[in-house]
């Protein structure tokens, strides 16, 4: 028996794009440095060679322009994948990505869909300072008409990205610079992962930990530590925040009676606050304590290493939150 194939997160992303491009000529990739440079983070390495410059397109630093161009092309029936080197740069493309992509179908009364995928690095990359460390899901999950995927591992990244490209609606696909080198099992054979289906990645009985993207790993670290302290955690990876699979979290909380939501975006009006609110509503009689939340600190992202570490969610903060949420144990 051969060992399970393990590849990096960035390779999983590239496999997803390349497979979909081989399958459908309407799919192409555009963005800054995606072609000749092989991608600022090497996600698109080798794609120019395989698909040529008509389908792997280097754009100038002009996010508003090329995001809008991709949306226009999608209205005509193409299926562009747009790489934002960082989602922080998507803020200068706010009008096309928030005013055009999510609303075109509605405003045209069903006449023009917009099958476009915007993808790139989200969240703190490590000492990049405040302007380059956005967790845009805090802002963008507020907008109906888009779907948002935030995978935590290579397997999910590939399956969710293929679903994003093959689907019919606009998708914001949020990756993390800090995870692109993470390795994980990705099978050779094709698979797709549907949106809105959370994964219970660690079963437990005392407290539900709900998260997505990079903080899922902090939740697993915290669960290990808490196990030593005699507290059994159930860890749920939501995988997409629009749709948000509240049902899986609710079923878990009805079992554990305690819940901690971990979200790297700021706390005020975030996917984490939405999930906590929904858990409160659906598990009002099941909870032993209020739903605790661990977010990034409510300040601009700092540069200094120690401040940045203190700013981000981490295992220590999650352990503290779980201890508080399960005070009665």
């Amino acid at each position: 028996m051969t060992a399970l194939r393990e590849i990096e997160f960035r390779d999983a992303l590239r496999e997803a794009m390349s497979e979909e491009m081989r399958r459908d000529k309407r799919v192409m990739l555009m963005g800054e440095e995606v072609a000749q440079y092989n991608g600022a983070y090497k996600v698109s390495r080798g794609m120019l060679e395989e698909f040529g410059p008509r389908r792997i397109i280097d754009t100038p630093i002009s996010e508003s322009g090329f995001a809008g161009m991709a949306i226009g092309a999608a209205m005509m029936g193409l299926k562009p994948v747009v790489e934002f080197m960082s989602w922080s740069f998507s803020l200068v493309a706010a009008d096309p990505i928030l005013n055009n992509a999510p609303k075109m179908l509605y405003m045209s009364g069903g006449q023009f869909g917009c099958s476009v995928v915007f993808r790139g690095n989200d969240g703190a990359g490590g000492q990049l300072g405040s302007t380059h460390s956005w967790c845009v899901e805090g802002l963008y999950s507020n907008v109906p008409g888009i779907k948002i995927a935030i995978p935590s591992n290579p397997y999910d990244a590939k399956g969710l990205l293929k679903t994003s490209i093959r689907g019919s609606d606009p998708v914001f696909f949020l990756e993390s610079e800090r995870m692109l080198g993470n390795k994980g099992h990705v099978p050779e054979e094709e698979y797709l992962i549907p949106f809105g289906q959370a994964a219970v990645i660690h079963e437990g009985t005392d407290c539900t930990l709900a998260s997505w993207g990079r903080p899922v790993h902090f939740c697993m670290e915290a669960a290990e530590e808490l196990k030593k302290q005699g507290i059994s955690c159930e860890v749920i990876d939501l995988r997409t925040v629009r749709p948000l699979d509240v049902g899986t979290v609710v079923r878990s909380v009805r079992k554990t009676s305690a819940c901690v939501v971990v979200d790297q975006s700021w706390s005020f009006g975030s996917p984490g606050s939405e999930l906590a609110s929904q858990v409160h509503r659906h598990c009002f009689d099941d909870l032993d304590n209020y739903v605790h939340r661990v977010h990034s600190a409510d300040v601009p992202t700092p540069y200094a290493t120690n401040l940045e570490q203190e700013y981000l969610p981490n295992a220590r903060k999650i352990v503290e939150a779980v201890r508080s949420a399960t005070y009665n144990l």
Partner: peptide, 27 residues
């Protein structure tokens, strides 16, 4: 392809329509 309410918003869309026309024919 619309009718767009934000001043100038349709100009990148126009580039995208042309991009798609050319891509569909040529590629």
């Amino acid at each position: 392809f619309g009718g767009h309410g934000i001043v100038g918003a349709q100009t990148p869309l126009g580039a995208g329509l042309a991009f798609a026309c050319k891509y569909m024919d040529e590629v």
